[in-house]
Amino acid sequence: MFSPEIVITAVLNGLLTGAVYALVALGLTLVYGVLHIINFAHGALLTTAMFGVLVLRLGFGIDPYLAILVLTPAFYLLGYALQRFVIGPASHGSDANILLVTLGLAIVIENALLAVFRSDTRSIDVPYAFESVDIGIALLALPRVIALAVSIAVALAMWAILALTDIGKAIRAVAKEKLGAALVGIDVAHVYAVTFGLGTASLAVAACLLMPTFYVTPRVGNAFVFVAFTIVVLGGMGSIPGALVGGLFIGVVESLSGLYFGESLGQIGIFLIFIAILLFRPTGLFGARA
């Protein structure tokens, strides 16, 4: 079959890709863990962020990694506003409605982007796109190594926010017991919106990490979000360590199945894992809650 070097490189590349997947999944699982909803607009919001990177680069010459500083706060606010003023009020607290409202948002965002940018595949040029790092056993692309490092930093930051800050404490309280949290004076609607904002902000970071080596089309987010759904289900809905481990695992699975079965069928591997987990172990590998 393949020589060990190729397989090792594939595994390492899978881990690097998996780091970005984990970041996308992190936002999804955070929102699920607190609001107990699946945000179907997650992929469309990722696409929006990727177009944001594109526009900042082409319009203002801002480097994608610098764009993190602009887009992360912007997307935090966007996510906050979406939950506070659209999803929350429109769904009247019913899960079925939240499902439909986030689906509606996804349809609107995706097609608005299609109307503005058309379906062309676009990418940005950065001078370091093809630079690589030699780690002895394999050559790794520099942007992917940066993506891994930043993803870990974001995961740590997210952990710090949840574990060490007051708002983090409030978020954990709402996640555990919404009514009790409201009774002790926590503004649940605000906490929901903050959580949604954090989830969206992590997408903005993911977009900045992706764009140097990836392309963007109005539907590109779907590919990632399916992977993210798989990771979240695999790692256990609402579990942040689960999302990280699941992300890395799926990255490797995708890379290896791409190597052995080719690109298009490689994707199927992800979906089959996804369906199998949903059907046979819906609590995920790490999750405890049903």
Binding site: I107, V108, N111, A112, L113, A115, R118, P218
Partner: peptide
């Protein structure tokens, strides 16, 4: 392209 779906979503 897509403008009708935007309306559907809204």
């Amino acid at each position: 392209p897509g403008i009708d779906l935007v309306v559907f979503g809204v």
